[in-house]
Amino acid sequence: MRSGGFTVLWLIPFSLVLGVARPPSFAPDWLLFWRPQWILLALVFWVLHLGVFRGVLFRALFPRGRSDDGTLFRRGMALVWLSGLVVDGLLAEPLGLNGAIFATIAFYLMRFRDRLALQTLLQRMVMIFLMVFIAEVFRAFVLNLLYGQPWVLQPLTVALTSMLAWPIYARLSDRTSSGVRGS
């Protein structure tokens, strides 16, 4: 059984690569509309494991104080927001967009951590669907507002494929020592 830290360490870069990888030239154009939100899924996985693993980067950025009570939440949120900024650069999207999405999702996951730990896989998949759908609608709204990008059904398709892709992450979670029940 591997540590959650090791899994998170390779899962995040791997998800970033999956998030920007283009399909082969023979693949139809519409396939891109069905690409799961790999980066958001990695974020959910990461935040669910945040309590048990903080990672090298986390420890370097936020050294542990005398008393850690209450600071994990704030430091985790700050790190998640900064990660969103990096993803903005990666996806060439307005600065702050992914930070806002990531911070909101991280807030929800950390706030209701205990309740979420009781979820079954099916419940978790439904939660992922709703979470990604709302995030993608917000993204589409901002891109429409700032760049005039038209509304399409992409939030729905992305949420659907993300929901279906979650069992891969859940399987990874089960195989780690720090796995959260139901994830």
């Binding site: 927001w81 307005p94 600065l95 702050g96 930070g99 806002a100 911070a103 909101t104 760049y147």
Partner: peptide
Amino acid sequence: MLVASLGLMTIDGSVPRA
């Protein structure tokens, strides 16, 4: 953080695209 994000998006959105 949300306020910072909104501020950043507003400034970034005001940058004229090429």
